[in-house]
């Protein structure tokens, strides 16, 4: 207590910058590793991910670095082909709610009309109160696992529909909250005195300061969509076999984990690499923006 009473007056700590920048760099490197591997490995290694190339459950070798799966497909090429699909879906699944939610939240936050705010916020409350995974499963069921939008494989539209319909609410809430904070700032007050139109204030003054907040969340959201796609096969939905997809590879590998650990482990390893990278980036971004809020 003595310490609490006597020392802190001199202790408004300024966090140090360098470790966070290192964290950011390592995080970006990890993400880049997985992304580049998913882009380039299927280009240079032209093995068909669905072709039966060797005996089933062969351990890792030079020819098949991650071994083969239960029917004799090359796990290495399957994992990175799956990476293309999972990452594409994650990006598509994030961008639409990010853009829509951010703009909607900012407009609501800037509006002086209470009614709009109440209607939209109660709606998002309702959505958020509902368990996310059950909501997604419902949407997946309604859209149906067979629905296709070329060139996406069967099952992908249902995943996208689910994330698009649900995820914007989080962005809208974040953006609205950030806008409310910004409206207290003098530079926004000044725009009123200078006669700037509301549209100008939203597009030129509010949105540029709201984006960083929602975009930071979007990075971590990427990961939750990857996790969602990967989880759906376990619940009987999602991307339909035989399309290579991280969740379905893990699901298949789970049954034979005692004989062929490499199927699950290689996939989990790649996803973990991505996940660690994303969390490091998010952590450093969050602490940077927090520091920016300090006086």
């Amino acid at each position: 207590m003595t310490a609490a009473a006597q020392v802190p007056g001199l202790a408004s700590a300024q966090p140090t910058t360098r470790p966070k920048q290192l964290e950011l760099r390592v995080g970006i490197t990890l993400i880049a590793l997985v992304v580049l591997a998913s882009i380039f490995i299927p280009i240079f290694n032209t093995t068909d991910p669905n072709a039966l190339v060797a005996a089933p459950l062969e351990p890792p070798s030079l020819a098949h670095p991650f071994g083969t799966d239960t029917v004799g497909r090359d796990v290495f090429i399957r994992v990175f082909t799956a990476g293309r699909l999972d990452l594409t879906l994650a990006v598509l699944g994030v961008i639409v709610p990010l853009v829509f939610g951010t703009i909607l939240g900012t407009v609501i936050g800037a509006s002086r009309k209470k009614a709009l705010d109440v209607v939209v916020m109660r709606f998002t409350d309702g959505l958020i109160a509902f368990p996310f995974i059950i909501l997604v499963l419902m949407i997946v069921l309604i859209v149906g696992p067979e629905a296709t939008i070329p060139p996406l494989p069967p099952g992908a539209p249902s995943v996208l529909a689910a994330t698009w319909l649900v995820n914007w609410t989080t962005y809208a809430r974040l953006a609205r909250l950030r806008t409310h904070i910004l409206r207290q700032e003098d530079f926004i007050s000044a725009t009123g005195l200078l006669g700037y139109s509301r549209t100008r204030v939203i597009t030129k003054h509010l949105l540029p300061s709201v984006w960083p907040t929602t975009a930071t969340f979007a990075v971590s959201d990427l990961l939750s969509i990857v996790a969602l796609i990967a989880a759906l096969p376990f619940l009987g939905g999602g991307i339909q076999p035989p399309t290579a997809e991280w969740g379905s590879i893990m699901y298949e590998g789970r049954g034979v984990i005692s004989q062929a650990w490499w199927i699950s482990f290689s996939t989990v390893g790649v996803v973990l690499l991505l996940g660690t990278g994303v969390m490091m980036v998010v952590d450093s971004l969050v602490s940077t923006s927090r520091r920016a809020l300090l006086p």
């Binding site: 207590m1 003595t2 310490a3 609490a4 009473a5 006597q6 020392v7 802190p8 007056g9």
Partner: peptide, 18 residues
């Protein structure tokens, strides 16, 4: 030294008191 030899009066008393 704290308290006995050196005493500190901080800038912001509100954050220094529980």
């Amino acid at each position: 030294l704290y308290g006995r030899i050196i005493g500190l009066v901080p800038q912001n008393s509100l954050s220094a008191l529980n």
